[in-house]
Amino acid sequence: MSRVTIPEVEHAYPGSTGCPGCGANLVMRYLLKGLGERTILTIPACCWAVMPGYWPSHCLKVPMVYCAFEATGASLSGIRAALDMKGVEDVTVVGFAGDGGTVDIGLQALSGAAERGTDAIYVMYDNEAYMNTGIQRSGATPWGAWTTTTPVGSSRDYKREPKKDIMSIMEAHGIPYAATVSVAHPEDFVKKAKKAKDARGLKFIHALSPCPPGWKMNPMKTIEIARLAVDTNVFPLYEVENGRLRITKKGKGLPIEDYLSTQGRFRHLTEEEVKRMQESVDSSLKALEEREAREG
């Protein structure tokens, strides 16, 4: 007997034009397994605006609106308002945007949708740079990473600023549900998608989405690297439900080198810099654990 641990139903067709090993394809696949077919997506400029393929190709079994880059939050509110006017209540409205479209150009509209309490799920698939335009730094690019706009020349001018803490930003809006998810842990992902679907208001899901070309990694390692991100505590899996935080999957506490060494974008880092990153990861995890203990 086979051991299927996530819903078998597929809401995605093969033939999407995402890169081989694309994490964002998996984010969509797991998300829809959790949400089901009565879902409407709105997607701004990002890899996923290209991945359904050229007209008339569509790689999903649910309807999808293409919206302007910075407009996902507003698009969510517009869709929900139209459904309300038509008396349709059993549809999940989802904004699905990249990290640049979320933490940078789309932050205002997202904040507006959260403040308005638009009943929708906003999913940020985070490949940690502007990947659709070809690997430029975003506010979600981690400290120390190479991108084409943080090149590592003789000045070693890699990204010098820490990754924007979008989970805290969203939490500060007092939203009912926020969660981090990983493509290496689809069971946890699907469970959180269902929880988000059942909560009312604006829900936020932060999905780490490995990008083989952008991270300078082997496409076969997408799951392995996503798993390492959790196990090195670079990307802890947790949820915040009505303000209470719970870590949903403990990492193994592996050293951060195990994660960094899998990706060319971190190759230039010195031992000292890796140590600094380890300290940063450790203190973030400590803060999470302390908070969980307080609220648990």
């Binding site: 698009s75 509110s77 517009g78 139209a82 507006g112």
Partner: peptide
């Protein structure tokens, strides 16, 4: 909404529905 850009974006999405 929180801006005119969002006002028109919301109009667009609602109209698509």
């Amino acid at each position: 909404v929180e801006s005119e850009h969002s006002a028109m974006a919301a109009c667009v999405s609602a109209s698509i529905l």
